[in-house]
């Protein structure tokens, strides 16, 4: 049997929950509400790749200039700033999302991937695209995910979850893995959790695992529950 090859997620404690890491190649969704750590997850994932000598490509759909993103990442001790620009390329596609059709966006992403030849790709957040592409959103997602699967890379899409929504279901059906990040109010304080909802070909830990997010270590899965 050909076993799946894996790459480290870059999240302390998560690799132990998922047979060693994300299958290579694969496309994963990391979904959660505001402040649950989706962007931090994406940056940790790319930083881990850069440490292994892999190229990373970070697409933001938010029209955020590079210096704005770097301003916040500078607060994280676990991210080596020297990686940005060379090992990790940052690409804003916000204007394309707002002003062009989905074919143009796919062409741009395709071209950028061909130019950089990354082993790790993050699109943060993918759900912002939905209202712009409306009824074409599902077609876009289908084509995007197939495009990503056909490149030799591990891709992480982040997805915003509105209050009351479990996860963005239009994305989950097409990806290989779904990781949920959540924040629950317990005993008067908000606690953060990570849950592997699905990972194809993987014996993964189930159930919500408590996490901490710090500027020193990023996201860490606490070992109290597994």
């Amino acid at each position: 049997m050909a076993e799946l090859e894996r790459v480290s997620t870059g999240i302390k404690g998560l690799d132990d929950m998922v047979d060693g890491g994300f299958p290579f190649p694969s496309v994963s969704l990391v979904a959660g509400g505001a402040g649950t750590g989706k962007t931090t997850f994406g940056l940790s994932f790319l930083t881990e790749g850069a440490r292994q000598g892999e190229k990373g490509l970070f697409f933001t759909t938010l029209s955020e200039p590079t210096q704005w993103m770097l301003r916040y990442t500078n607060q994280f001790d676990f991210i080596d700033k020297d990686f940005f620009g060379d090992e990790i390329k940052y690409q804003d596609v916000g204007l394309l999302v707002q002003n062009e059709g989905y074919e143009e966006l796919l062409d741009f992403i395709d071209d950028k991937i061909a130019e950089v030849m990354p082993q790790r790709i993050v699109i943060d957040p993918i759900t912002v695209v939905g209202p712009f592409f409306k009824e074409e959103y599902r077609s876009f997602l289908f084509e995007l995910i197939n495009l990503l699967k056909n490149w030799q890379a591990v891709s992480v899409l982040t997805g915003e979850v509105s209050p009351g929504m479990a996860y963005p279901e239009e994305v989950t059906y097409a990806v290989d893995s779904v990781i949920l990040l959540s924040m629950l109010e317990e005993e008067g304080s908000r606690r953060k959790y990570l849950e592997v909802l699905k990972m194809r070909g993987t014996d993964h830990t189930t159930g919500k695992q408590p996490i901490s997010i710090t500027t020193e270590n990023g996201i860490v899965v606490l070992k109290s529950r597994f």
Binding site: L106, D111, A114, E115, E143, N146, L147, W151
Partner: peptide, 30 residues
């Protein structure tokens, strides 16, 4: 994908011939 990479990096494909055994399983219209 390889053809696209070579094209993107301005490498002539005059002297390459592809034998593709996976496209029929790739599932992409694109």
């Amino acid at each position: 994908n390889m053809s696209y990479l070579l094209q993107n990096h301005d490498i002539s494909q005059e002297n390459i011939w592809y034998i593709d055994a996976v496209s029929h399983m790739s599932g992409s219209k694109r």
